[in-house]
């Protein structure tokens, strides 16, 4: 199976056939992960560097695990961009690492487009593990995989994305991926969380959570980034919870079941109540396991032939 893309910078412009192939492959790898011996020799002899310029626990561990399950050799590099800016330049760091002959680079960076910059400097397969507020394609792919697993077809599925859309790479990747797969998307949050002209992406917008819940078959609840709240986009977490928190009472008012996703880490009792997050309608823990499978699929599809 071959993808039309050579790198995974984001899901913007990635064709439906590619996304379908990634999801199908991921389901096969999911089976591997259920076996007693969870390892395949697919990427034996390949060297992968996990280049994390921004702190990450889940995504980094998920990638590392995926790489190990595929028998690749991996090295990790973590640095904060701020220390980098004072000393060695990004380009120098990358070229130094690459001089050691890497086949694949998995990169997280705090600035949109940093992965594209990387592609100018190195001749390796590049996988975006999140570039600032731009994209986080593997997260969106694992979201889509989890939804597919739960509800079947993504075509015409009504998905509401709730929270700080303006600063969310998860939201943007989900929008690009889900639109390509034929889903309908409604964004929901206070106006200060909705970016300018986002309707241009073919989505609808509401400031009213109840309206979004009436629309939705499934909701993707974004994490409130408490560290961002000093900018003053919302007056308080308390009022946010009142207006946009996914509570049992709200869900009880609906005459339907809604599937709930959350990219983690969860702020319990802020954007989502514990009772809801831990309920049978939440597929948050499926997302985590599917994350490993998705990353295995992408690594396999992009790197095995190279």
């Amino acid at each position: 199976m071959n993808l039309s893309i050579k790198h995974l910078f984001g899901l913007q412009g990635v064709p439906k056939d590619d996304i379908t192939a990634i999801l199908d492959t991921a389901f096969s790898f999911r089976e591997v992960l259920e076996r007693p011996v969870k390892k395949v020799p697919t990427l034996q002899g390949k060297t992968i560097v996990n280049l994390f310029f921004e702190p990450s626990t889940r995504t980094r561990i998920s990638f590392e695990l995926a790489e190990k399950r595929l028998s690749a050799d991996t090295v990790n590099f973590s640095a904060s961009t701020s220390s980098l800016s004072k000393g060695e330049s990004l380009k120098d760091t990358i070229q130094n690492l690459f001089a050691m002959k890497m086949d694949v680079v998995v990169m997280r960076h705090s600035v949109p487009g940093a992965v594209k910059l990387l592609a100018q400097f190195v001749d390796a397969v590049i996988i975006n593990a999140g570039d600032g507020t731009h994209e986080h394609p593997t997260q969106a792919l694992l979201d889509m995989m989890s939804l597919k697993e739960k509800v079947g077809d993504l075509e015409d599925l009504n998905v509401a994305i709730i929270g700080d859309i303006r600063h969310s790479r998860v939201a943007l990747s989900n929008i690009y991926g889900l639109k390509t797969m034929g889903a309908n998307i409604m964004l929901c949050g206070p106006p200060t969380f909705i970016p300018y002209g986002v309707e241009s992406l073919g989505v609808s917008v509401t400031y009213d959570l109840d309206e979004a819940l009436v629309f939705a078959d499934t909701v993707n609840v974004l994490r409130i980034q408490k560290e961002r709240q000093d900018i003053g986009q919302i007056p308080s977490l308390r009022e946010y919870r009142r207006l946009y928190g996914l509570t049992r009472e709200r869900l009880n008012k609906l005459k339907k079941q809604i599937t709930i996703l959350h990219p983690g880490p969860i702020n319990r009792q802020v954007e989502i109540d514990s009772e809801v997050a831990d309920s049978e309608h939440s597929i948050i823990l499926h997302q985590v396991l599917n994350g490993v499978a998705i990353r295995m699929a992408i690594l396999y599809l992009l790197a095995s032939g190279k």
Partner: peptide
């Protein structure tokens, strides 16, 4: 980092 508009929104770049 760039003009705030449809393009910055689509690229996730702060406007």
């Amino acid at each position: 980092l760039m003009n705030e508009g449809v393009v910055s929104t689509q690229l996730g770049i702060s406007g």
